[in-house]
């Protein structure tokens, strides 16, 4: 079975390569957009208790939604293809990054902030020089969770015509062809594991010395 899956890849390098590329580009784009939105939003929310309560609760609800449901909900709104899949995956990636960023900023020692203010650092200098470096390890952990969720969720993009490795899986199921299913499933799994390892390293690299 594995052998025939491998054979399929060797015989259809273009088709496999395109699906793999679509899978990765979809995931990376979703993660980048989500990061660009959720990190600034999380930092902003950390200083606004009332709005934050609402936003963090919403994010927590968002976190419990099944990936497939989010993707399915996009169809009536945006139709099928790359864009709705990207949109859905971005939505999936937002909550963990937002929640971690918010928590990371909130856990920065208030005495450290007080000392910084008392010495005449501006709000901007405090955010950039103190809060963000101290929050980065926890924010990176959120991005790591989001990345794995997106890479895994991207498998389901096939259901709304988003393409990617999920195409092989849905086709494999439809045709009762396990080897075709594996052409999608095994690389998708390896991608998820690789992503986890990669972001684990990034997380360690971003943790400032003297912390953690």
């Amino acid at each position: 079975m594995l052998a025939s899956a491998w054979q399929y890849i060797v015989e259809h390098p273009d088709r496999f390569g395109a699906a793999l590329w679509r899978h990765i580009s979809l995931s990376v784009a979703a993660l980048l957009i989500a990061t660009a939105i959720a990190i600034p939003l999380g930092i902003w929310l950390a200083r606004r208790a009332r709005v934050a309560l609402f936003a963090i609760n919403a994010a927590n609800v968002g976190r419990t939604l099944p990936s497939l449901a989010v993707l399915a909900l996009m169809m009536p709104l945006l139709g099928t293809g790359f864009t709705p899949a990207l949109f859905a995956l971005t939505l999936l990636a937002l909550p963990p990054i937002l929640i971690n960023t918010y928590a990371a900023v909130r856990q920065v020692d208030p005495d450290v902030i007080d000392a910084a203010r008392g010495m005449g650092m501006t709000q901007r200098e405090i955010t950039r020089g103190i809060v963000v470096p101290l929050a980065v390890p926890v924010i990176a952990a959120g991005v790591r969770i989001a990345a794995i969720q997106v890479i895994s969720g991207a498998v389901l993009a096939a259901y709304i015509g988003g393409g990617g490795l999920g195409d092989f899986i849905t086709a494999g199921i439809a045709m009762m062809q396990i080897s075709l299913l594996l052409v999608g499933a095994i690389p998708a799994t390896l991608l998820a594991i690789g992503t986890d390892l990669l972001f684990g390293r990034v997380q360690r690299a971003l943790t400032p010395r003297g912390v953690g």
Partner: peptide, 8 residues
């Protein structure tokens, strides 16, 4: 509490 910056 001193408030030294732990990452510096």
């Amino acid at each position: 509490q001193v408030g030294l910056f732990p990452h510096m």
